[in-house]
Design a protein around this nucleic acid. Sequence first.
RNA 1: GUGGAUGUAGCUCAGUUGGUUAGAGCGCUAGUUUGUGGCACUAGAGGCCGUGGGUUCGAGUCCCAUCUUCCACCCCA
Length: 415
Amino acid sequence: MIQRPKGTKDILPEESYGWQYIEKKIEKLFENYGFKEIRTPVFEHTELFQRGVGDTTDVVQKEMYTFEDKGGRSITLRPEGTAGVVRAYIENGMASKPSPTKLWYNMGMYRYENVQKGRLREFHQIGAEIIGADSYLADVEIISMANEIFKVLDIPNIELTINSIGCPVCRENYQKALREFIKPNLKNYCEICQSRYEKNPMRILDCKEKKCKELNINAPRIIDYLCEECKIHFENVKSMLSEVGIPYTIDTNIVRGLDYYTKTVFEFISKEEGYTILGGGRYDGLIQELEGQETKALGFAVGLERLIEIFLKHNKLEDKTAPLLYIANIGDEASKVATKLTQNLRRMGLHVEKDIQGRSIKAQFKYADKIGSKYVLTIGETEIKNQIAKIKEMQTGKEIETDLTPEKIKEIIQK
RNA sequence: GUGGAUGUAGCUCAGUUGGUUAGAGCGCUAGUUUGUGGCACUAGAGGCCGUGGGUUCGAGUCCCAUCUUCCACCCCA
């Protein structure tokens, strides 16, 4: 048997309704906040992620699905959404649109990771980006919208944590302090960390190696090195969040795995599941890094598989796929009548089923029961001769007489 | 990348100290004198016992490898 590749999942009919429900709710929410949908390619030039996400990050260094296509180009399946959206923004001259530009997406992402609870190789994210906004008010708006997702879906026990990781100005001072801290022990760090020392010492802080983690215990924290502007920005975000009644905690350990983040970063964490369900932040330097004009921006992404897992623990969805009417028939003549009648009722916008296997009347009833049909109409020779048939309400067993016109049948079953 | 568990019908699982044609429940299909579902009864279909090696007269059962799934570390959504 050929199985699906590791870390992928089939979304079966039983679950797809839940997906649709959640997606519609979130999309409606986003539209209310003035966001418009964008769809970008599943694959991009590898360089986009190397430069956008950062070639010292775990995502780029070891988790990308990268391959050479037949034209010799290095191609990568997108591991996240922001780089592609920003690329599209620049490439399509969206800077000429009213600023800020608010975009949302719902796309599959691909990362070669070890599979476990809430972590897949193909997963889906719904994300939102505000491009062209530098005020702290934009930070508050995007965090508010993220917060509303859990409100409209009735998902409890989600905690918001925020942090500020500064801008290039504060980073220069901070990285200097960090390098000074690391330097005496540099040769004791792992190879990867040593290679990160010059280029991006902050990455050394989230190395997985035990020895590196131990060496990092007393490392300086970015929050203590924020420049005046970043400090004020962060203070404003915090006080405005309190003002609009969104509770948060500050976690100075939030670094975020992607290099493009600046200033405000945040995560919504599920206490029950023990993982981050939504993450985001500001990325003031990304558009320039990708050769656009200096444009400040921010956004977030929510993991759909994780969101749905938690959602289903707190909410039950009823099966809306059951038909309203099943038309059972006996004999060739009745089969013709039933087929035409089914077609007419479907054209009238109703969910109607009929036998397509030539099964016995008993088997037809069994099937109608199994698929949860609310009514069953039986057609045989007598019914055709008299032009009168009975509609049975399955739950009560009650029978109602009707003629064989679709209008009359529709009237009865729609009550 | 490291560590732990797992893998027998569509699903949930039995399978005794290695011993004939591998079982159950649920589900599926059909029937119980042929025009009515849910209950009951009967029958049927459906398994290279994850895959590949090895030990043995003989392996679902023991050994090795590999893959899958699940979980933890870490990181993330």
